[in-house]
Amino acid sequence: MALKLSDYKTDVHNDWCPGCGDFGIVNAIQMALAEMNIPRDKAAIFSGIGCSGKTSHFINVYGIHTLHGRVLTFAQGAKIANPDMTIVAAGGDGDGLGIGAGHFVAAGRRDVNMTYIIFDNGVYGLTKGQASPTLKLGEQTKSLASPNTNYDVNPIGLAVASGFTFVARGYSYDIKHLKDLIKAAIQHKGLAFLDVLQPCPTYNDINTRDWYAGVDMVEEAQKRHSRIYKLEDIGFEPTVHFNEESELNEKLSQALIKSLEWGNKIPIGIFYKNELISRYGERLTDTIPNFLENPPAKQRISSNGKPITNVSKLLDSFEV
């Protein structure tokens, strides 16, 4: 039976501030799941802690609201143990790039087949607007006592450098485009990263919806109606097509260079995509040949309450 979009919505009251960019992201995730017709019990949303962390409660699939900064660890464990699940991890920029930055880098190296979405609002929303790792040096959002003293982290660049094999950016008010990106990310074979520009109308008075729309830059805005443009519109080709160093270097470096664009022209779309690298689960088959057919969650361990793992030979080897 085909599921409808409404099947993916819970009736949990959503307490985000009016106008928050998070609404667009949740809608896009629900639409992507519905369009892909993923059974509700075969999908799980893992989320971190922050305003963004509540996401898992609004989507009617398994929803695991974890710990601040640790969402990737929980999600990877679940995916490794049960590879049949479609897993989307979601969390704030503070969650993923501040307290969780170590896990971000380690996850890239592992390349577990799942999707990770960062709600990039430049602030720590839920703790009332402190600077997040993506806020630029010297910027002073509403609740900061003084301008930001740290240089910003570049999420796209960090993802590319860490080994994520699908790296993209979306915009929370372009829901249709975002939905398509989420679908592409889920379909991607490997760890997909999505940096979603998410205005926080309550605390980030710099990167607002109007700012992204280019309202302040009259002349430019006349031409484009937005600071944001799509990589696909300029014919940007993100995919690594063959496993050669020159090809890889070209695709990695163009992604890095694109990731540095900010200010009056902000690219969204897919920066980098490489499916020629083996996924973590497949790497495990080097030592456990049937790992993918018989992963941890599928294994029988007992029969009538008795163990069925036979360790006789092992014990024999220790017998004197």
């Binding site: 990737l72 660890t73 464990g77 143990a81 049960n82 380690a106 018989n294 992963p295």
Partner: peptide, 27 residues
């Protein structure tokens, strides 16, 4: 044949996070 997935993680926070994720799958 069955198997034990032994995962070396980036730190102990990840070790316990992953194990909880895995436990949620009934493993």
């Amino acid at each position: 044949p069955g198997s034990t997935a032994i995962i070396q993680t980036e730190d102990e926070i990840s070790a316990i996070g992953m194990m909880i994720g895995s436990a949620l799958t009934g493993t």
